[in-house]
Design a protein around this nucleic acid. Structure first.
Length: 576
RNA sequence: CGGGGCGUAGCGCAGCCUGGCUAGCGCGACUGCUUUGGGAGCAGUAGGUCGGGAGUUCGAAUCUCCCCGCCCCGACCA
């Protein structure tokens, strides 16, 4: 490709709307353009990169017995009524009617569609297991798209679905899929990807992992032990905090005028937040009141609480609801509550600590020396705490580290969540109909491209790993009008192309600085520089985008050298 | 959905508070000449419903109201 013909302007100045590295460089380098909030067109460079990412994914999915299919983006709502998700998924799902008034929707994920396929094509245990995957557009009406391609509304996703006769078979395939994912992200050139335990959310199912590209701009928070023996999303992370048990002191009511927050009460009584108990009231989807109690120095993890309560949505309760249960906002106590109208959930931090300050259910009063076992004969004890950086790892006991990550892939064991309601069954050897057991496996393609930039860039632009770079070699031509220069450049361009090397030729004759800066922004890993000075000496200058190598090659053998180098690098990154 | 910011040429911005002639600047684009190893110089050219609508006014980019769009934080998120 000649740069003079390439569509997609480089932009010198940082666009006002872009903040993160990938967003800035995807716009500045001419890879992608915004069309609407969270909706982008890919320009030729971006399209080449995503095509290479998709090719890697295809190879690896085929290697683990995936069969590629293509399911529709537009689906009838009735299919989602069968699974129950027409009701359970909210406004993220874009719904509309076709010309006949039939309810339709845009697929945000394709469990229903693939189950529809599976049940029509497969009916015997002899056909199991099998794996279908597609690389297809998804639409989610995100409440808040952000950071360029990292969180968008319309996006390309590889989604795979496996179908099994037994849980054991699913377990085995799940491991293979996990290994394939590790290979895929390695081959893309992501150098820091963690597979972590995660919440299963609306997908349902029991076991799941998220693949997180570690990056400051990531929107997920991860806790991990220093050597990675334990890794989990903050939503479900646990810590092995030891709480101090002391001899219970007598319960006593103290006057705490105007002191409502944990900080105020602790300071007023000369104590630490860790010496207090915090009351947080929630309402679940059916407006049932939940009293969550946790030690004052912790926060309630709403995901853990939701999972424990087996409810899909909770929200903070208003003061009126709190008073109806007999509690006093700001001074709420777990004691003396109407156990009929409120469900009391007590975090381990409260149950296993002693002599805490808690509310007295009376304005301007607290109790000192609350002890759960002695003073409360109600409540369910569980872990509803948000892990904090430095809390002890549940596996090693070492301080947990907090990191940010971009979720580039995930894998779920769905079980029969979809196959049962949608009657996707097979006949087992005994002739008995059984629901198929399912797993699903996703990778965000555009998000992966953005994640690679987040992990691999400098102040000038992206530094593409060769496996997904839009081209392998970038030829900068300086002073093409001087004798022999453009001839040399055209010769290299032609010969490298004939050797199967993908070459971008900057034939514009721009000033050196201009050409180099564009080359940096395009980020192709290998660069050749053809200039009058080099041509006169029969040389071609070589350098790598990351600055690691810089060398003069003889013009006579530069084609051989470069072709071999590209082959070696590609083979290496493919793990061969 | 809550909070904040922004909308003037392809991009980045000034002008707005305190209304006033043909709405400016830098970059980019186009033409010509000169230049050529880290974003060149000179000369010239094109490019604008000042986000949209209504209102106030002799007069609105500027003031008022309504709407729309975009970005950031939060809520939410397979």
């Amino acid at each position: 490709m000649r740069l003079s013909r390439l569509i997609g302007q480089r932009i010198k100045e940082t666009p006002r709307d872009a903040q993160t590295a990938s967003h800035i460089f995807l716009l500045r380098g001419g890879y992608a353009r915004p069309v609407s909030t969270g909706i982008y067109s890919l320009l030729p460079l971006g399209t080449r990169i995503t095509a290479k990412i998709e090719a890697i994914i295809r190879e690896e999915m085929n290697r683990i017995d995936g069969q590629e299919v293509l399911m529709p983006v537009v689906l009838p709502e009735e299919l989602w009524e069968e699974s129950g998700r027409a009701r359970s998924v909210g406004s993220e799902l874009l719904r509309f009617e076709d010309r006949n008034g039939k309810p339709m929707l845009l697929g945000m994920t394709h469990e229903e569609a693939v189950v529809h396929l599976a049940r029509t094509e497969v009916n015997s245990y002899k056909q199991l297991p099998f794996v279908l995957y597609q690389i297809q557009t998804k639409y989610r009406d995100e409440a808040r798209p952000r950071a360029g391609l990292i969180r968008v509304r319309e996006f390309t996703m590889k989604d795979a679905y496996s179908f099994h006769a037994t849980q054991d078979d699913l377990d085995q395939y799940y491991e293979r899929a996990h290994d394939a994912y590790v290979r895929i992200f390695n081959r893309m050139g992501m150098h820091d990807v963690a597979s972590i335990q995660s919440d299963t959310g609306m997908m349902g199912g029991a076991v799941s992992h998220e693949f997180m590209a570690i990056a400051e701009s990531g929107e997920d928070t991860i806790f991990m032990s220093p050597k990675g023996q334990y890794k989990a999303n903050r939503d479900i992370a646990i810590a092995n905090v030891h709480f101090k048990k002391e001899d219970p002191l007598p319960l006593s009511k103290v006057h705490t005028p105007g002191q409502q927050t944990i900080e105020e009460v602790a300071a007023y009584l000369g104590k630490q937040p860790a010496d207090t108990g915090k009351a947080v009231f929630y309402l679940d989807g059916d407006d049932n009141l939940i009293f969550a109690m946790i030690r004052g120095d912790f926060e309630v993890n709403e995901t853990k609480l939701k999972n424990y309560l087996q409810t899909s949505a909770i929200r903070f309760a208003d003061d009126a609801a709190i008073r109806r249960a007999g509690a006093e906002p700001g001074y709420a106590s777990p004691m003396d509550l109407d156990a009929e109208s409120v469900r009391i959930i007590v975090d381990r931090s409260v149950a296993e600590s002693s002599n805490l300050v808690v509310g007295a259910n009376e304005a301007d009063y607290h109790y000192e020396n609350f002890n759960f076992e002695r003073d409360l004969d109600a409540g369910e004890v569980t872990d509803i705490a948000v892990v904090r950086p430095g809390d002890p790892c549940p596996v090693t006991g070492q301080p947990l580290q907090m990191k940010r990550g971009i979720e580039v892939g995930n894998i779920f064991q769905l079980g029969t969540k979809y196959t049962e309601p949608m009657k996707c069954t097979f006949l087992d050897p005994n002739g008995v109909a059984q629901p198929m057991i399912m797993g699903c496996y996703g990778i965000g393609v555009g998000r992966s491209m953005a994640a690679v930039i987040e992990q691999s860039h400098d102040e000038y632009g992206p530094i593409w790993p060769i496996a997904i770079a839009p081209y392998h070699v970038h030829i900068c031509v300086l002073n093409p009008n001087k004798p022999g220069v453009s001839e040399m450049a055209e010769h290299l361009y032609r010969e490298l192309h004939n050797r199967g090397v993908e070459v971008l030729l900057d034939d514009r004759g721009e000033k050196a600085g201009f050409a180099f800066n564009d080359a940096d922004l395009i980020g192709i890993p290998l660069r050749l520089i053809v200039s009058p000075k080099n041509v006169a000496q029969g040389k071609v200058e070589f350098k790598t985008r990351d600055g690691g190598q810089r060398e003069m090659f003889d013009a006579d053998n530069v084609v051989d050298i470069m072709a071999a180098m590209v082959d070696d690098l590609l083979a290496y990154s493919a793990g061969e």
